[in-house]
Design a protein around this nucleic acid. Structure first.
Length: 587
DNA sequence: GAAGTGTGTCATGTA
DNA sequence: TATACATGACACACT
């Protein structure tokens, strides 16, 4: 249907019939017969080509105007903003044009103005940043001759004076776009902060510029950026990235280079997302062999300084922060760290027959570490991005079973007991050691195909079934047995301590309760004592009252020294002589 | 550096 | 008898 590029004259009658049939089919879709007319299509093509040429010329013109505009601005170092020069020197494009071609010299009429009015600036801006209004597909500009240095401003377009005037008039019609353009310029100055961040990337200069020649050219050709101090370094530094990064940059640069609606924010995002993507994609597959990348990762302290840019605030910045703690020797897949008790290779099969304590001694003896390289890079990649990304992890550790890489909370706890880590000040190493318990390391060293978690937690039956599926030697069996015993005992000890603590807490609660009860009882006792005292007092008063009213046969009161009142069990009250009372008591 | 705390491990006993 | 569990005791790291 679309292949109708050959002239109709060359078509056979059969072709024409076919076209008719197809047209009749498409006519329902609103397709005119002219679609199949080659000459009509050729005219359209010519028109499009002409338009494209005009737009290319327009772009060239805009670039020149941008340059002219920025020559009227100076960077305010305090605010980071571009401001018009107070005593702006004549905009001498001619100075620049000493290295430019003749057509650029035609801009003298523009450059001879001593100052630019704000209106002129707005016109220039409007032309320089037409934005989406006339966005055009990217047309790479290929210089006809080798370009060096400041000759980036070579211009071979139409007469700037006339065309530029037309454009400024046209651009001035849209006030809204002018304001938008001005705000865009102002926002670019906000990239001063980005500039500072980007400065940190200078350390990447180890990568030769020549590795990305196209990129270098692209960056240098971007005259607009070269004329802006605030964003000069980022662009220059782009060429310092390694090949794989730079190549991708080269594909991203054209947006910057040609699209007038270019935004530094989006550029920053593209740049950092690209780095992000590259790091993520490259590391897992090549971490063991890509020396260049390893160097890059060693410099991630520089790259991570870019974290202020949002592209780096994501999840792709693994914890390399500790790389300055001396762990760098461990970052190599070749594992030259003396403190690599976690690097199980030194347990290798050659250590069969060693007891746990002997193995512990090896753990604790830095000098005894054998530099046995991981012999393979298994493809069993962990789900844990950290392990797949981190150069700190020997690659073969990645092949550990998933369960090993997702230890229980208990396993994640640092294991200080018996873990005679020789370099305890190495926080990163300690963390990694905590990640892999000693038993996990041992299991890995003896190539036991089960996770410690499985070995410990499987029920006996399932454990036996699992064991029966493999052939193990003495050392492996002993280790599996020890791992299971230690694992269960560890959990038991934790439970025991937990229970002990719970018992202590319970006893403390009981103690508090008992103390409260004691206080309560003491209070009650006091109240009862008071009541008793009152009762005794009332009884005494009543006794004396009753006793004082008693009279003998002669009408005399009884002496309280000789008599007393006594009550029997049946409730009767008798007046008893005290001597008699004593006798009764004795009886 | 001593003391306290948390944890892993071992030895032993019990179910 | 094997296994799981409980617990005291010890060693070590850490605060």
């Amino acid at each position: 249907m679309t292949d109708i590029a050959t002239p109709l004259a060359q078509h056979t009658q059969q072709d024409m019939d076919l076209i008719d049939i197809l047209w009749k089919q498409d006519i329902d879709l609103g397709v005119g017969r002219e679609v199949f007319d080659y000459q009509q299509r050729q005219k359209d093509y010519e028109l499009e080509k002409q338009k494209k040429l005009e737009k290319e010329k327009l772009e060239q013109l805009q670039k020149e105007q941008e340059k002219a505009f920025y020559m009227h601005l100076q960077l305010d170092e305090e605010t980071g903003e571009f401001i018009p020069m107070q005593h702006a020197p004549p905009v001498e494009i001619a100075v620049e044009s000493a290295t430019l071609n003749n057509s650029l010299q035609n801009k003298d009429s523009l450059g001879t103005e001593s100052t630019l009015s704000s209106e002129d600036l707005i016109y220039l801006l409007t032309d320089a940043f037409p934005f989406a209004a006339d966005s055009e597909p990217y047309q790479p500009w290929v210089p006809e001759a080798p370009i060096e240095g400041n000759q980036n401003f070579l211009y071979s377009g139409p007469n700037v004076e006339t065309d530029g005037l037309k454009n400024t008039v046209a651009g001035g019609e849209n006030v809204h776009e002018m304001e938008q353009a001005w705000q865009e310029i102002m926002s670019i100055t906000e990239l001063k902060g980005l500039n500072n961040e980007m400065n940190n990337m200078i350390d990447l200069s180890m990568y030769s510029n020549t590795e990305c020649p196209a990129l270098t050219d692209t960056a240098n050709n971007y005259s607009f950026l070269n004329s802006m101090p605030a964003i000069e370094k980022p662009i220059n530094n782009i060429s310092n990235f390694p090949n794989d990064l730079g190549a991708s940059f080269a594909t991203g640069i054209p947006d910057v280079n040609t699209n007038a609606s270019f935004s530094m924010d989006s550029f920053c995002d593209n740049l950092l997302t690209l780095i992000d993507t590259k790091l993520t994609n490259v590391v897992p597959s090549e971490v063991a062999s890509n020396q260049c990348l390893k160097e890059l990762l060693n410099d991630t302290t520089d790259i991570k300084d870019l974290s202020l840019c949002k592209a780096f605030n994501g999840n792709s910045t693994p914890e390399f922060n500790d790389s300055d703690s001396g762990i760098s020797i461990n970052t190599s897949p070749c594992g030259t760290s003396p403190g690599q008790s976690m690097n199980s290779s030194h347990y290798g099969d050659g250590h069969f027959g060693y007891s746990d304590s002997e193995m512990d001694d090896m753990d604790s003896a830095p000098g005894s570490v054998h530099q046995i390289l991981p012999e393979k890079n298994k493809s069993t990649i962990s789900e844990d991005a950290f392990f797949s990304l981190s150069p700190f992890i020997p690659q073969d550790m990645v092949s550990f079973e998933m369960d090993d890489l997702s230890p229980s909370a208990n396993d994640l706890v640092t294991a200080p007991g018996h873990s005679k880590a020789p370099f305890t000040k190495d926080k990163t190493l300690s963390r990694l050691e905590a990640r892999f318990t000693r038993d996990e390391q041992r299991a890995k060293a003896l190539k036991i195909p089960f996770s410690v978690d499985k070995i410990v937690n499987l029920p006996v039956d399932e454990f036996n079934v699992m064991m029966s599926k493999h052939q193990f030697n003495e050392a492996q069996l002993a280790l599996i047995r020890d791992i299971r015993r230690r694992g269960k005992n560890k959990v038991a000890a934790q439970n025991c301590r937990k229970r002990k603590m719970e018992n202590i807490v319970e006893l403390e609660n009981d103690l508090d309760t008992l103390k409260y009860e004691k206080e309560k009882l003491l209070t009650e006792k006091g109240e009862y004592n008071n009541s008793l005292f009152l009762l005794k007092k009332q009884i005494g008063t009543l006794y004396m009252e009753v006793f004082s009213k008693l009279r003998d046969e002669e009408g005399k009161p009884y002496s309280s020294q000789e008599y007393s009142l006594q009550q029997t069990k049946d409730g009767n009250v008798f007046l008893v002589p005290k001597a008699k009372k004593l006798e009764i008591k004795k009886e």
